[in-house]
Simulated scan of single mutants.
Amino acid sequence: MEFNKLGNSGLSVSKIAYGNWINHGGKVDEDTANECVKAALDVGITTFDTADVYSETKAEEILGRSLKSIRRESIELCTKVCHPTGNGPNDRGLSRKHILENCNASLRRLQTDYIDVYYAHRFDPTTPLEETMLAFADLVRQGKVLYIGVSEWTSEQITHGAALARELKIPLIASQPQYSMLWRVIETDVISTCQREGLGQVVWSPLAQGVLTGKYLPQQPIPTQSRANSSAGKPFFDKLAHRWMNDNVLTAIQNLKPIAQEIDLSLAQLSVAWVLQNHNVSSAIIGASNPEQVRENAIAARIKLEPEIMQQIDNVLEGLVEYDPSKTG
C-alpha cells in the first residue's frame, strides 16, 4: 500500500480506503464483512470510511466490531453526519443538535473515543453555516474529532466553509466527492477550490457503482447477483448509475477492456488506478462484497498509468463523460 497526505494536513491516508456503504448490514452478512475488513488490513489499507446513515446505522456497528481488536492509532476511522437517522425534525441536517448528538452516537457504534475525519455528508441549506462549523469546532476542541471534511459540496460552499474553519482555527482538510472515468464534475472548479483551501480529495464510487467493472453488457439482462439487482443496492444503483445503463456507454466500457489487458490489469483495477492518477486525489474509496475484491482493487494503489493510456481511455469515452459542476451533490 502507498500513502498520501490528506490535503495540506499532516494526516496520512492509504491511497485505497475501505468503505462499507451498502455492503455492511445490507448486501453481505457480518462474517463476510469481517473477512473483507481483515483483507483490507492485510493489504495495508489503514483508512476506513462509513456514515451514520449507512444501513440505518448498522454499518457503523459492524465496522466497529470488525476493528475492535486493532490498535486504534494504526488506522484512520472516518464517518459522516447529515442524512436522516430518525423520524424527528431534528434527526437530520447540520444543526448543532444533530451534529453533537449523532457524533456521540457514532462514537458508541464505532466503539472508539474519536473520529479521525468527520464529514458533513451534504450541505444543509436550512442551517446557518456558522452554526454548523461552530458545532464541528466544539467537537475538535473536545477531542472527539481530529479533522473535518465535506462531501458533495460545491466550490462556493467549500469556500465559505473554509473561511469559517480558518476563523475558528479548525482543520478542514477533506472533500469527498463522486469521481470516476465517467463522472468528472469536480474537475471544473471543486478541485481548484480545494487546492486553494488546502483540502484533499477522498473520492467515492471510482467504479461508477460497478458499471466500470464491465460486468453489465450491452443488450444483455442485468446479472442476477449484481448490486443492481440486490435489495440493498438497487435503490442507489437506480439513482446513481442508471444514467450509464445504455448501449452506447456499455459498449464503450467493453472497449476499455483491451486497454486494461494491455497492461495486465482488470477493468476494475484500471478504473481505480485512473482516479489515483489525479494528484489531487489523496485516496479512493472501494467497497467489496468479498475479500478477493479488496485484494484485487488494492493493487491499483501501485499502478502508474502512462499518458498514452490515459489518452486512450479519453478517446474511448469521448462524448460520454459528465463534466457539469451543477450536478455536484
Rank of each mutant, 00 (worst) to 15 (best):
V81G: 03
A120Q: 10
V145H: 09
L146N: 15
H121Y: 05
V81Y: 06
G161M: 09
G93F: 00
T132M: 01
E76C: 12
S106K: 09
N102E: 15
A137E: 07
L182E: 10
D116V: 01
Y119S: 03
V150S: 04
L129E: 00
R109C: 09
P177A: 04
Q111S: 13
P128Q: 11
T154C: 00
R72K: 12
E73C: 08
R141A: 15
K97Q: 14
A137L: 08
P89G: 03
F123W: 12
E167S: 11
I75S: 12
Q178P: 04
A120P: 05
E187V: 04
L100C: 02
L110C: 00
R96M: 03
L94F: 04
I170P: 06
V185C: 10
D138H: 12
H83C: 05
Q176N: 09
T126E: 13
L134T: 14
I148N: 08
S192Y: 11
L146F: 10
K144E: 05
D116Y: 06
R108D: 14
G161T: 06
P171K: 10
T159M: 12
T112V: 08
D124F: 00
G86T: 11
P177H: 07
W183E: 13
E156C: 03
S175F: 01
W183Y: 15
D113V: 02
F123M: 01
R141W: 10
F123N: 00
N90Q: 11
P171N: 09
Q157W: 05
Q178E: 15
E101I: 02
A137P: 11
H121T: 07
